[in-house]
Design a binder for these strands. Sequence first.
DNA 1: GCCAACGTTGGC
DNA 2: GCCAACGTTGGC
Length: 159
Amino acid sequence: MKRWLFKSEPTEFSIDDLERVRVEPWDGVRNYQVRNMLRDQMQVGDRALFYHSNAASGTGAVGVMEVVSAAYPDPTQFDPQSAHPDLQSDPNDPRWLCVDVAFMARFPRVVSLPELRSLPSLGDSPLVRPGNRLSIIPLTAVQYQAIIRAAKKAPSRQG
DNA sequence: GCCAACGTTGGC
DNA sequence: GCCAACGTTGGC
């Protein structure tokens, strides 16, 4: 079982939305590095933290979900109405993939980005590196556990 | 809304 | 294969 962190802008799709629908395709990935992780590494049963980026309600990790499908062609790439159509993608050899994710749990509080930065195990993660372009980030077991543990603790005075 | 950092594209 | 222009991400 691998562990990940998935970023989403809550105005696009939030953990509230996932809690309501329970299962949702994580579509719209248009980055080759992330596509390759979906294709080559992600497996049913993997765990992923849900991260709200650019969030008025607080940027940070907000909950846990489970990967419930293998990677399959992202249908939105062929939909001109979608947010990120890719008309150069060949339907017989689709360029972009997605997986289905299922809601597991919501954290009792947001683990903010400053707090994530303060976790020693995350020091070399792309998550806390400025300018990183990965919307899906692999986490080690240690990193994953550190964030879960932080979520259960009372917030630090800085928030 | 601004802007820094980065990936992608395309001219050469 | 280089690199400038461009678009996007995402923190602030």
